[in-house]
Design a protein around this nucleic acid. Structure first.
Lengths: 240, 240
DNA sequence: CGATTCATTGATGTCGGTCAAGCTTAGTGG
DNA sequence: CCACTAAGCTTGACCGACATCAATGAATCG
């Protein structure tokens, strides 16, 4: 099997040059980053980190989608983060990682060795500043997700997840947005683990949303949203 | 009614001098901070911010406890953060705040005017670095909480909340830890809103934990935990 | 002392979980 | 080319954990 990942020569070609942790860097800072950077690829389904492992590197998702997950000793799983291209992975100033990280699709990472990266945070202001921005955004997203998990119904949860993915995927591919279409990067099981539901409930609610004309799909993963606002109205976040 | 807040003369007297966002500052940096800082107090129950309001200041909790909450249009509420002394409040680089913030007890804040504080993040490395650390810690905590909300039973949720508060309160009051005792800073309703439960379920599970000897209380808020490890065993996070 | 807020407890209902069967698709090997 | 298998998904029947509805108690306050 071959990985569907882009060939990359330099940071100038990089699809995430202006959204990732390096996006505020000046040319000289970029040169410093280049010295501690290397690329890695993972096939869909592969683990990237195991929770508790020593953290050798941090980095950016260049292409593909990966998930952060936490697991209880008896096997219950909760996804706690969805990393799309540009998102940052890993935790500076900590020796181990506290989540499992898995590649949901084929994934390409731009990795930085952790120790020198931590030094750059101290010495190179634009890296630390951008990382702070990104971390604050992720904290906002995590809190938004707490509301979904704690207070929404199954139907609202599914609508929220589909809406979020549709919006985030659309923002990655600038262009027309007449009718939103995207390929779900995750399985029904992963959806269930995001939403604190079972796979059966996910399936039922997907069918219900389909029957109600809010989404359409034949291939199980290729979702079409005829009316993004109508879908949003199902998330519970809209007035009446 | 008078507020139970400490009198404070200078940063040297400050109870959170070595844990808050200013904890890494050198004396000259502290002087800069002092110029943009002022204290405010809030009585228990008072709002501190309304979601969507312009964000005039950011700051640290000096004493007391406050909550971040998100609300759905139909009134459902989810607490998304518990701010104890030393914790940071507000969101640099954003004009509005996206959560309501309320004082759960009498609260004293050390406030910084937002604009000059944002400038200090750019100019004063130790402020930004400490804020990054704190934000990463909060992100970890939020993800931990997503697991609680998504995958734990009502009993496990209550045990998790009590355990977390017991540990965090204990870490604020250095000293003996023979038997853990603390005053719950929040009502049953707030507990329910943290855990994605109803107040009735919270009450029933509190009674159940009391009957099983895992916690003890007469006054509804004064909790005694005879065995912190036994309580932790009820959180679902332990092996078997 | 009403009035109000907060908490507890009981009776009943329901949403989503559990258990189970069957379908579709992709991959493997005869 | 066709079994055979396995993974992923869908659907149905049933059940249980937690929500809802309701009554009461305890503490606080004007």
């Amino acid at each position: 099997m071959t990985l569907a990942v882009p060939k990359l020569r330099s940071c100038n070609d990089c699809p995430i040059r202006y959204s990732a942790v390096c996006s505020k860097c000046e040319p000289d800072e970029l040169l410093q980053l280049e010295e501690i950077k290397y690329y890695r690829t993972y096939a869909a389904g592969q683990p990237i980190f195991f929770g508790g492992d020593p953290l050798e590197f941090v980095g950016s998702v260049v292409s593909g989608v990966s998930s952060l997950m936490r697991t209880l000793p008896d096997g219950r799983v909760q996804m706690v983060g969805l990393l799309l291209p540009g998102d940052f992975m890993g935790r500076p100033n900590r020796d181990t990682i506290d989540c499992d990280v898995v590649a949901e699709t084929d994934v390409m990472l731009c990795c930085f060795r952790r120790k020198p990266f931590e030094k750059m945070i101290l010495d190179t202001p634009h890296v630390g500043q951008r990382l702070l921005e990104m971390t604050l955004d992720e904290l906002d997203a995590a809190r938004e997700w707490m509301l979904v998990l704690g207070r929404k119904t199954a139907r609202e949860k599914i609508a929220s997840l589909l809406h979020m993915i549709a919006v985030r995927m659309a923002s990655l591919q600038p262009g027309e947005t007449a009718e939103t279409t995207f390929t779900l990067p995750i399985t029904r099981e992963t959806m269930a683990n995001y939403l604190g539901l079972t796979i059966e409930t996910v399936s039922r609610q997907m069918s219900a949303l389909k029957k109600d004309g809010l989404i359409a799909f034949d291939e199980r993963r290729d979702i079409r949203v005829p009316d993004l606002d109508a879908l949003r109205a199902e998330t519970g976040e809209e007035g009446f």
